[in-house]
Simulated scan of single mutants.
Amino acid sequence: MRSTELGRSGVQVTDLAFGAAALGNLFAPVGDEEAAAVVDAAWSVGIRYFDTAPHYGLGLSERRLGEALARRPRGDFVVSTKVGRLLEPLSELRGDDLAQGFAVPATHRRIWDFSADGVLRSIEASLERLGLDTVDIVYLHDPDDHLDQALSKAYPALEKLRAEGVVGAIGAGMNQARALTRFVRDTDVDAVLLAGRYTLLDQTALPDLLPAAAERGVSVVIGGVFNSGLLADPRPGATYDYTSAPAELVERALELKAAAESHGVPLRAAALQFPFGHPAVGSALVGARSAAEIRDAAAMLDHPVSRTLWRELLTDGLLTAGTPIPHGD
């Protein structure tokens, strides 16, 4: 699988990246064997970039990912994790963590912390859970409501760790384009991770974030290419951004599906390949809870998509005017 340098960091990431939230039992339990199998499948299709976070299953995702990668040569893969939420052990079990989206026992509570000390403590704990001596990429995780502290305290701490060679690349990960544009313009991040805002259904990142990233040599890692399900299987009742999709978006997704299939293209393939039309995009992050899902994602990335389809989507107004399109075949 093709690899691209993340910004100017020297860190190489594969076009397709594995998002490990499901390893933390996102929404529903995943067994230990199944978790290991999905990482094995990701490896077998050529994925070498794996993304996780303490938030995912109160550390379960990091532990499972570390265990699954332990038998691989350390120089052959890239791992990113995140800072901003410290995990504090609870004195007694308090039910489950489903209110936060994870089917795990509530053994810890999350504490928002974008201080310099919080960054160091978070990375130290992540390395222990991952079983690694170093982490390749660190993102500030969802600093939406803590932007001032993230910029004034957490970011300089990450910049110092990068200068010291403790981490290879630094950035921020969010579900919105506006604040990430600020990181791109006002800091020296290598990459930003944008979830759900540059997809076939939402090109919010197109006017500002992506041009700014391209101008400054910052890579954009795209998450949520399927908008949490609607673009994988458009139908009434499908999810969009982790909630029930509005009827008008379901209708638009069905129009996209019909257009793609008229060219012999599964909508999943078009959705996954779409972000790569923009030169700032370095990788697409796909979550999977089974080996079959990650193998399908790899197949969709390689599926032929004609330039005619992309042009038709532009002509019919299903993509924002001026949206750059992949080269196609």
Rank of each mutant, 00 (worst) to 15 (best):
residue 204 T to R: 13
residue 206 L to A: 10
residue 206 L to P: 05
residue 207 P to E: 14
residue 207 P to K: 13
residue 207 P to N: 14
residue 207 P to A: 15
residue 208 D to N: 14
residue 208 D to C: 07
residue 208 D to E: 15
residue 208 D to M: 07
residue 209 L to P: 11
residue 209 L to Q: 09
residue 209 L to Y: 09
residue 211 P to V: 12
residue 211 P to E: 07
residue 212 A to H: 12
residue 212 A to R: 12
residue 213 A to D: 04
residue 213 A to Q: 07
residue 214 A to D: 10
residue 215 E to T: 15
residue 215 E to M: 09
residue 216 R to K: 14
residue 216 R to Q: 06
residue 217 G to C: 06
residue 217 G to P: 02
residue 218 V to F: 12
residue 218 V to R: 09
residue 218 V to P: 13
residue 220 V to S: 12
residue 220 V to F: 04
residue 220 V to I: 15
residue 221 V to E: 13
residue 221 V to S: 10
residue 221 V to G: 14
residue 222 I to Q: 13
residue 222 I to V: 15
residue 223 G to V: 00
residue 223 G to C: 05
residue 223 G to R: 06
residue 224 G to M: 02
residue 225 V to L: 06
residue 225 V to E: 01
residue 226 F to Y: 15
residue 226 F to A: 02
residue 228 S to G: 02
residue 228 S to T: 08
residue 229 G to R: 01
residue 229 G to H: 04
residue 229 G to Q: 01
residue 230 L to G: 11
residue 231 L to H: 06
residue 231 L to N: 06
residue 231 L to P: 00
residue 232 A to S: 15
residue 232 A to P: 11
residue 232 A to E: 14
residue 233 D to T: 12
residue 235 R to L: 09
residue 236 P to V: 12
residue 236 P to E: 09
residue 237 G to R: 00
residue 237 G to P: 00
residue 237 G to L: 00
residue 237 G to A: 02
